Simulated assay, not measured.
Amino acid sequence: MTGASAHGAPSRLPFDLPRLGIGTAPLGGLFQEVSEQDAAATLEAAAAAGITYFDTAPRYGHGQAEDRLGRLLAPAGIAEPVISTKTGWLLRPEPDGSPGTVVTDWTERGIRASLESSLTRLRRPSVDILYLHDPDDYPDEIRRTAYPAVRRLRDEGLVRAIGFGMNHGDRLAAYVAEFEVDVVLVAGRFSLLDHEALTTLLPLCAKTGTAVVVGGVFNTGLLADPSDDAMFNYRPVQAETLARAQRCRELCAEFGVPLAAAAIQFPYLHPAVTSVVVGCRSAAEVSANAAASRFPIPDRLWQRLAEEGFVPSQLPTV
């Protein structure tokens, strides 16, 4: 069974994608190391919360996130996970076995080598989604070799769906307009503080039936905890943006709603959005985010957020 996007366009995805997923960059050591014990507990908490969708990539900890999923999902009790990973970058270890460097490779040989390595780490014969990862500045390479390569991988059954994963809505939209795309992952560009994806990407995906997965709903943590030392889009937050996030928290508090709940549920206001993925590094974060995704939000709060510009006027709030 597949869903439908706005304007009645049938979804290109050949399967239903869970509403909430976990992004595994933290399990690869993003910002700080995560112990093996905490990684296992994170996945166990996901199983307890009924979460089965996991987004990963070779670049997350030089393969560590994929390796941990491959080893720890089954012991956590997740027998049939939905997994998306990414390609376009190859890990080049040093002779001494250290992680070494990550290099771009958009050739068919590179695309296949990347996926084969991912499948080895994930201990799986195939994955559900393969994204071309951050191809912002490589349109010629994508057109000539990379996109045809992932289409062939889909035809061969090594992946079920293909798409692009990026941080820029307009550039993603250009790829959706040019290529047949099953799904896109847009990170940080559709949140309570950033509506970039609404201008071109989301309306286009609704029209084409391209499923949209939204990541970065906390904008690197600011919308989880808008404090002075918070990060916003991978940089220290500026005073004006911090004030906006704190105002958003105040409005949510007036209705007894945690800011994190509004941040996680905001993308679902657009009918093209299929799923939200949130990065988690501990069992506590998984439990908190799962609860936030289910927290009841009254229509009046969405209306108040719209009145102050946190929710665009184009989105339905009732």
Rank of each mutant, 00 (worst) to 15 (best):
P316D: 07
H195M: 11
L251C: 05
P93E: 12
A291C: 08
A48S: 10
D299E: 15
V103L: 09
E250K: 15
R300H: 12
D228Y: 12
V103Q: 14
A206Q: 03
T101K: 03
R19K: 13
P26M: 09
P135M: 01
G221W: 09
K207L: 12
V34Q: 07
P125C: 07
H7E: 10
D140M: 10
R249W: 01
V183N: 13
A290V: 08
F310Q: 12
D182N: 04
R171C: 06
L192H: 06
A288M: 11
S275L: 02
F310T: 03
A261L: 02
R304D: 10
H168W: 11
L305C: 05
A46F: 15
D55K: 07
V150W: 00
L115W: 05
P296L: 00
P58H: 02
D170H: 05
V181D: 09
A46D: 10
L185M: 08
I297H: 12
C248S: 12
T107S: 14
C252Q: 12
T104C: 11
D229M: 02
W89Q: 11
S227V: 15
D140N: 11
I51A: 00
R59N: 14
A239P: 04
G256K: 05
F232N: 09
L30R: 15
P75L: 00
F54K: 00
A292G: 05
E94Q: 14
I83H: 05
Q265V: 08
S35Y: 10
I162W: 00
Y53M: 05
G97N: 03
M231R: 11
R235Y: 06
Q314V: 15
E254Y: 13
I22G: 04
P125Q: 07
A187V: 15
A261K: 03
A253M: 13
L222S: 06
